[in-house]
Design a protein around this nucleic acid. Structure first.
Lengths: 166, 166
DNA sequence: TATTGTTATACTCTATAACTATA
DNA sequence: TATAGTTATAGAGTATAACAATA
């Protein structure tokens, strides 16, 4: 049978002159089992939520937000540790810190123990923005609860942590 | 108590002069419940797997791979539908198709029914690359099974589909 | 007039190499 | 000699506006 030409699961012998009508009818083929693809698709949703609840209201990008949250939750951190936690190269982190510093959200203090190193410290304004935008995470996640139960939300995060593995 | 100054869950009153030592010890604060953050972290893992199993072996980027899989699984598609399925702007899709066409993986045929429209068709070489790289998805996903059971992998994809909602 | 696709352009994001200052 | 951080720069990814061809 003609299907023998199709060594992969999910690959139909399509009739070349009768393509599906709607893009939502499209078959994913091998993609349907590729985690990375579904992560990319889901991130479109979460990015939209982020923009609406945090990005636009507070003028923050995703990494800027994550950085503020980390310093808020842990106290002063060196750029070195922030770069590791955010999986950012040192030069990119420098530019990121420059922007947030220019906005008056943080300052860099040289460490007294090792004068090569720095401590990234939130200013008062930085504290305010970090706490307010951090609080916005609650309604942001709630917006997902029409697609996902709370238990599914928690389960999803737990599974993603296993994938991230750190 | 001092904790009253901390209106958000997961926000300790950190001792300003005793930051955590290892970055893996860092508290995520509000981030711990933010799905988008965990998606971003997990995508670092899946992107690495993609690069190793598909990106480098076949010289394909993520969107290029997705595009090939869609045309492989559905047959000739118009740029319009591809742009919707891949959530890509029309100009960017044009450049993407240009690259793949230059490599001889696909060609563009004008539709006879509506001469504004086109059909993106895989060349023989494109079919070969698509089938081979599509087959590489199997070992790529298998590489996750030391972090995730097969059931968890399937569950994770199902939950992500709910989040993506399309 | 509306739609498909292209061109031109700019802005963000990310990656690398070379540099400084401290250790 | 090694490490923390910076500067400079280039590449990839993405967004918008203006345009051509067809409907």
């Amino acid at each position: 049978m003609a299907r023998d030409r199709s060594p992969l699961p999910g690959l139909p012998d399509w009739p070349a002159d009768r393509p599906p009508k709607a893009f939502s009818d499209l078959s994913l083929g091998p993609l349907s089992d590729v985690l990375g693809y579904h992560i990319a698709q889901a991130s479109i949703t979460t990015f939209g939520l982020f923009e609406r609840h945090v990005g636009q209201p507070f003028g923050l990008r995703k990494v800027e937000y994550s950085l503020l949250m980390l310093v808020l939750a842990n106290g002063p951190l060196s750029p070195k540790k922030l770069a590791q936690a955010l999986v950012l190269s040192a030069p990119n982190l420098t530019l990121l810190l420059d922007r947030l510093q220019e906005r008056g959200l943080l300052r860099r203090e040289r460490s007294q123990l090792d004068r090569r190193s720095q401590n990234v410290v939130l200013t008062d304004e930085g504290q305010r923005v970090a706490r307010a935008s951090g609080a916005a995470a609650v309604p942001m996640e709630s917006a997902l609860f029409d697609r996902l139960s709370r238990a599914e939300h928690a389960m999803l995060i737990e599974l993603l942590r296993k994938v991230a593995g750190r």
